[in-house]
Amino acid sequence: MSEVREKESRLKVDGAVSLIELHETVEYILPDEHYDHPVAVIECIEGIPCNPCETACPVGAIVVGDDITTLPVIDPTICTGCGLCVAACPGLAIYLKQQHHSDGLSYIAFPYEYLPLPEKGQAVTMVDRRGQHVCSGTVVRVIKTKRFDRTAIVHATYDSAFYEDVVNMVRL
């Protein structure tokens, strides 16, 4: 992304957070190439009163604290990648990511609340924060459990060249 486009893309004007804005927050931690499994990434940069991510986490990897407007902080080294926070976040602002999943492919598991749901093995189009088509992806699995309360979690792999850009897929 060019510098100019980066600046255009600002949360309170464009609707989506820019990478520059994200990188300015200490709460956004993109897992590096050393992780051998996907871990949660939280894109929650405004202090709204909310903490289900913290209460959903079974291993205490996410901390909000008593003041529920504090931004959530994750310790990715503790995160097991269970995905409970992904479904629990009312803002749909959490996904799981792994940079090197298999031969040149990155891995993402994102919340998806549209019908129809994609199916395992289906080729889909991955999008960035502004809804722009980035690359193709392959659905690895779609998880829909009662606990996730009608928020499906779609697991997919895609070209690692676009590791940070991809956040979701084009709705079917």
């Binding site: 894109e43 803002g91 924060r129």
Partner: peptide, 23 residues
């Protein structure tokens, strides 16, 4: 207004679905 009013997580949800905002 020159800035969006809603929570960023809500605007981000529709923006990544391809909806353009015009402030």
């Amino acid at each position: 207004a020159p800035n969006l009013g809603g929570y960023g997580v809500h605007t981000a949800k529709v923006r990544r679905a391809g909806v353009p905002f015009y402030t």
